[in-house]
Design a protein around this nucleic acid. Structure first.
Lengths: 135, 135
DNA sequence: TATTGTTATACTCTATAACTATA
DNA sequence: TATAGTTATAGAGTATAACAATA
């Protein structure tokens, strides 16, 4: 066998990342899925719950208690959509954005350290290639 | 935000890989963990159950029904270790190796196709860099 | 009739502790 | 007392279906 499967290689990297992220997120009072919601809302300021669930690859029914928790902490608000009274528009609050950015700063620092085993050119190559494989 | 988190990028790639692998493995009558066991035994022909569980990142208690199923299909055998009668040595059978190689051929073909969005040089760079991030 | 959010339920996956037989 | 394998059980995570309100 000339090399390991891609699934095994990528899987091991993801496990490392998850293990390294968990305590950082926990220190900011966030789970991985909560962080994922905040991250998406920072990119896409207003989303219906359904669009949000689809975008982050989560189930719309599991999303409800997740949003309840984040709304309870004041990190996001659910506003009735005047154009479609069935839909709720989910929006990040300033507190939510601040919490996200604080958590992200820690995660980015961890990532830089993990990437530091690679040369600057290798890091550039990797970051250029990953989004193309992810789509 | 200059780029997505590494966790998000790698996570999306892994989800793609898992989604693409599942039907291939299913066609060979294997789950992902079963494939993982066979793959490890092909590299490391004889292992105790405990060492095997640790190596693939699985729980020793969950491993038992998994090995039962694979042994029932004749893909591996559990032999009492004469030196230590508590331990069982797990060993791949010729059928197990054949099943693994058939599944792996399909998976490799899928991987080549997924990687084909990259140039040959980009593929080389990626495959050189991944194992260093995985450790 | 279809869609949005919600709730309830069942199912799978995973982690923990306890048991046996050996050492 | 500790270890290898096993079993049982509880917990977390996930998927599915059904419901109310609105379109």
């Amino acid at each position: 066998m000339e090399r390991d499967d891609l699934g095994a290689l990528f899987g091991r990297v993801v496990r490392r990342l998850i293990a390294a992220e968990r305590p950082l997120l926990e220190a900011h009072g966030l789970t991985m899925w909560e962080y994922s919601v905040l991250t998406h809302l920072a990119k896409q300021p207003t989303e219906t719950q359904q669009a949000l669930a689809a975008a982050i690859g989560y189930d719309k029914s599991r999303l409800i208690p997740l949003l309840d928790g984040l709304a309870g902490q004041g990190l996001l608000v659910r506003e009735p959509d005047p154009a479609n009274r069935r839909a709720h528009a989910v929006r990040l609050t300033p507190d939510g954005l601040a919490r996200l950015e604080a958590a992200r700063a820690d995660i980015r620092a961890m990532e830089e350290e993990l990437l530091s085993v690679l040369s600057a050119a290798e890091q550039r190559h990797l970051l250029a290639v990953l989004p193309r494989l992810a789509d």
